[in-house]
Nucleic acid binder design. Structure first.
Length: 584
RNA sequence: GCGCCCGUAGUGAAGUUGGCCUAUCACGCCUCCCUGUCACGGAGGAGAUCGCCGGUUCGAAUCCGGUCGGGCGCGCCA
């Protein structure tokens, strides 16, 4: 019977065992050979001795990563020979016979070396070797446990797991699709779903009360450190007869807080997850996905400077903008060149420059202090409760620019001063996203998140709104340490509102019927109100396991160019295959 | 598509104010020695036209231009 190495062998002293595994390391003393044998449970030392091992010469041929089977006897080591660095260090296996199951060439990377981890491209090219590392093995097992926790949670709450098609339809809004040509229907295409959005809404019409799925989603957009290229996984869910997003939030919140505390062993910054509106998020943190592990709020100073002598600030306010500031504790420690670097960041975000005050030796030191009155300086300090050693950074510009600049600086300062505790997780629900948004590239009003949300106030809200951009949707994101991990909404289940929401953007009913025919049809036949959301599972797992690159938590990720360097995909295909599809 | 950074033996690094570079070190690999190692040890050896192309120069791993590949960010991601 085959035994696992780390788990079984220590319990089998003086017994004969058959072991299989990889040669992890060899120490050849000529007349005596030690092999560390490795399997998925760990290592055990094999001893090859001419006196006890048949065909001892074969052991001399062993090299790293050979796959072998040995028969031998587990023996307790003498006290002086024990190795307390190894869980199996109190025993060893005296080998009687050896069988080489497979040989290995010298490895192109050294996966087991901590000092010289190969660059990521090589690790991905030889991912099957990289996966032999203990860290990656642990990740894979932990990820399976993560999925089980999630499934158990959903099942307990009577969600039904339903899979939806991978060959689906191109969706008009949103990310770039992956297209799949149809062989049977020449000239027509399937698209891989960016999310099972429409299918899950149709399941609601189909009488499913609560649906969930660990869904594969496909998007052809450039990746980031926290965003995979191509395919990724979402916990997708939807609930019928729900008209308020708060219901969804309350059902799902304990899953995430439980994953943080019980699964990842981390501490929640706040025991209950706060709700802030999109508007509050922008105005207080300069971001719709703020990291709430640290405070550093954006504070409005416009009333202080509206009549100021300092033209830069005053003009921003009288021009319709505003002046805001953040307090950076211990900011006086920043060097001139560091401040220059932060100034460059501010400029990249659209600021004209970066004004600041340093509170040092009981006085305010700053290149701009001389333009400000004593009252102004006092008022600013008091409002920010700025103390000795603090620095105050300003932005004076339009509403959008001020919040974008200070929001960026807020996270940059936090990174510089290590304000985010890595053992802590801050969750927040950002609610009430705008239904429409201004699309600067195309100079027109567009859907904010997606066209499937229910505007607050229903069809009247769209018809009566003087400013379309003021319409709010019952739409919400969950944010974890500054990462968007969930997005959801109360859906629009009413065809009339659907037509109206598109009409407000200038689309006629024909357009809507063409793009969303299936949904519109279905909604005619007694569609229940429904709401739901989708969690980005790879990204959550990344945060829970302290990784800062999402590819570290995926077995076979594609690289930043969308290439699988191990499988060499994408690749050319046989012309015969193409001609079957009607291609050239 | 744009910006910033990176590219030196199989791997990880050093060298990058031009010449002490006939490119250094460690790990790995090969040969030989070694019966208690566990980062085994010892002796020896192979292995790099410094991503590629072009330019400047008496002279380029080093400077310049281009190009390819990679990372991060922006755009994009309903």
């Amino acid at each position: 019977m085959n035994r696992t190495l780390s788990r079984d062998t220590p319990t089998l002293v003086n017994e004969s065992v058959t072991l299989k595994g990889w040669v992890h390391n060899r120490r050849d003393h000529g007349g005596l050979i030690f092999i560390d044998l490795r399997d998925h449970t760990g290592l055990v030392q094999l001893v090859f001795n001419p006196a006890t091992t048949q065909d001892f010469a074969l052991a001399g041929e062993l090299r790293d990563e050979f796959v072998i089977e040995v028969n031998g006897k587990v023996v307790a080591r003498d006290e002086t020979l024990k190795n307390d660095k190894l869980p199996t260090g109190t025993i060893e296996v005296v080998v009687q016979s050896l069988r080489i199951l497979n040989r290995s060439e010298a490895l192109p990377i050294q996966p087991f070396s901590d000092e010289q981890q190969a660059n990521e491209e090589l690790r991905l090219r030889y991912r099957y070797l990289d996966l032999r590392r203990e860290k990656m093995q642990t990740m894979l097992k932990k990820r399976a446990a993560y999925y089980k926790t999630i499934r158990d949670y959903m099942e307990e709450r009577e969600f039904t797991e339903i899979t939806t098609p991978i060959l689906a339809n191109s969706s008009p809004e949103g990310a770039r699709d992956f297209l799949v040509p149809s062989r049977v229907h020449e000239g027509k295409y399937y698209a891989l779903p960016q999310a099972p959005q429409q299918f899950k809404q149709l399941l609601m019409v189909g009488g499913v009360s609560r649906y969930y799925q660990i869904a594969t989603c496909f998007r052809d957009e450039d990746p980031r450190a926290d965003r995979l290229y191509g395919d990724f996984y979402q916990l997708d869910l939807e609930m019928a007869f729900v008209e308020d997003g708060e219901t969804v939030r309350q059902i799902m919140e304990p899953l995430i807080t439980g994953l943080v505390t019980d699964f990842a062993g981390k501490r929640l910054s706040q025991p209950s997850v706060p709700r802030i509106t999109y508007r509050e998020a922008i105005e207080q943190y300069g971001s719709d996905k703020p990291d709430l592990r640290y405070d550093m709020k954006l504070v409005d100073m416009s009333d202080i400077y509206v009549n100021s002598e300092f033209g830069v600030f005053k003009n921003a306010i009288t021009g319709g903008g505003l002046v805001k500031a953040i307090r950076v504790q211990n900011g006086v420690s920043l060097s001139r060149s560091q401040i220059d670097a932060f100034t460059d960041i501010a400029k990249r975000e659209g600021a004209g420059g970066l004004a600041y005050l340093m509170i040092e030796d009981g006085e305010v030191k700053s290149p701009i202090a001389k333009f400000m009155s004593a009252d102004e300086l006092t008022a600013v300090r008091e409002r920010l409760q700025a103390n000795e050693g603090d620095a105050i950074f300003f932005a004076a510009d339009t509403y959008e620019t001020v919040h974008r600049v200070l929001g960026k600086l807020r996270s940059e300062f936090a990174a510089h001063f290590n304000l985010a505790n890595p053992d802590e997780v801050a969750l927040v629900w950002v609610i009430d996203f705008p239904f429409y948004e201004w699309n600067e590239t195309e100079k027109r009003v567009d859907f904010g998140h997606n066209p499937f949300s229910m505007p607050r106030g229903g069809v009247e809200a769209i018809r009566l709104a003087e400013d379309k951009l003021s319409i709010v949707a019952d739409q919400y994101d969950m944010v974890m340490n500054g990462y968007e991990i969930c997005s959801g909404a109360v859906r629009n289940h009413n065809p009339e509102i659907m037509y109206e929401s598109f009409a407000a953007l200038g689309y006629d009913s024909t357009y809507v019927e063409e793009k969303f025919g299936a949904m519109l049809n279905a909604f005619k036949f007694g569609a229940p109100p429904h709401a739901g959301c989708a969690y980005g599972l790879d990204r959550i797992f990344m945060v829970l396991t302290d990784e800062d690159n999402i590819r570290e938590v995926v077995a076979f990720p594609k690289n930043g160019s969308g290439v699988d360097v191990m499988m060499n995909s994408p690749s050319h295909v046989d012309p015969a295959q193409l001609s079957e599809l009607g291609g050239k």
